[in-house]
Simulated assay, not measured.
Amino acid sequence: MAHKFTDDNFEQEVLKSQVPVIVDFYADWCGPCKMMAPIIEELAENYEGTVKVGKLNVDEAPNVSSKYRVMSIPTLLFIKDGEVVDTVVGAVPKGQLTDKIEKLK
Rank of each mutant, 00 (worst) to 15 (best):
K80M: 03
V21R: 14
N63T: 06
P20T: 09
N9K: 14
I39M: 06
E83N: 11
D7W: 08
W29N: 09
K55D: 06
P38A: 01
F10C: 07
A2R: 03
M36T: 01
L43C: 10
P93Y: 13
I73E: 09
P74N: 11
D7R: 10
D24E: 11
V53A: 05
G90C: 01
K55L: 11
D99C: 02
H3W: 09
Y68F: 14
E45D: 11
K34I: 13
T50K: 08
K16N: 15
D24S: 04
L77A: 06
H3K: 10
E60Y: 09
V85Y: 03
L43R: 03
V70I: 15
M1S: 15
F25V: 04
T75D: 10
V89M: 06
S17G: 02
A44S: 14
E83L: 08
T75I: 12
K105F: 00
T75C: 07
S65G: 13
Y47F: 15
Q12A: 15
Q12E: 15
S72V: 09
P74I: 14
I101N: 06
V70C: 06
K52T: 03
V21C: 13
D59V: 15
H3N: 05
V84Y: 00
P20R: 06
K52L: 08
A44C: 07
I40D: 02
I22R: 08
I79R: 14
M36V: 02
Y47G: 14
D7Y: 09
V92A: 15
